[in-house]
Nucleic acid binder design. Structure first.
Lengths: 145, 145
DNA sequence: TATTGTTATACTCTATAACTATA
DNA sequence: TATAGTTATAGAGTATAACAATA
């Protein structure tokens, strides 16, 4: 019983902490003064430079309908941040990659997410290491893809 | 340097973990089959039974413009989930409270957020207690309101 | 037939600006 | 004057359904 209570309380705190730190999230407020909506930030965050991303996979990762991705990418493409490219292997598939401008903006976004008032910077070295170990344990249990 | 790296890595893992667990978030997908949008879930989550919430305060907590709250509450009120009531002290202010149906739906939502596949249930008792202590330390540094 | 991406449509969310009513 | 909430408007996000091109 104590265990479940600890877990519930921890999760509630985690939610609260996360919401308080939303400017450090990919889909948080961090991109609003870069002229990016939350969804656009998320897309930019998910397209890694030099790693073309099929639109279908983007829809899956965002867990939204494929038709959304069309409009989302339309707007990013109109701003010259991403480019569509038909896949060499399967001509139905379109791969997304960042333009140079897109890569620059993504870098700004990541920089903003990482600092300067980093969410975890108030923890001591030892506490940060403890947290890291706990999280790695959590993710090891889950990442099976 | 090790410290900053631990912190960055921990934060990245935290973001990833959170996104993977979004069905357990108030504004995650947990309410979609209850017929609630993410924003509506969030509102329902924030109005505690027996604790009337001024609309302005709701807008602040959601960190959105006050005009959004009007429509948001309109839709919830049309569905009989919340009710507006003028504040006895300041007649400009409207307080929100849950209807009985709203309280029932909120309870379902909270139940869904808490389980059955609770995000932290894979941790041992000791790990959960460690995590709780780390989070309490983080929040103690921040909650000054 | 099944899959990828698009279009059309409708609804919700969100911000800005102008407004009403209270204070 | 300032504040709480509303309205009008515009743009963006989201899901559903129907569609074209490709596999």
């Amino acid at each position: 019983m104590g265990r479940d209570q600890d877990a519930c309380r921890a999760w509630q705190l985690l939610v609260k902490f996360f919401f308080a730190q939303r400017e450090h999230l990919p889909s948080g407020g961090g991109g609003s003064d870069l002229g990016l909506s939350p969804a656009q930030c998320h897309v930019l965050h998910l397209i890694e430079p030099g790693r073309p991303l099929p639109m279908r996979r983007l829809a899956q990762t965002l867990s939204c309908d494929a038709s959304n991705v069309t409009g989302l990418v339309d707007r990013l493409e109109a701003r010259g941040l991403v480019a569509r490219r038909p896949s060499p292997e399967d001509r139905r598939v379109k791969e997304l990659k960042l333009t140079p401008a897109g890569e620059r903006l993504r870098a700004s976004l990541l920089r903003r997410m990482a600092g300067p008032a980093h969410p975890l910077s108030r923890l001591s070295s030892r506490q940060q290491r403890e947290l890291l170990q706990l999280l790695q344990h959590l993710m090891d249990e889950r990442d099976r893809d």
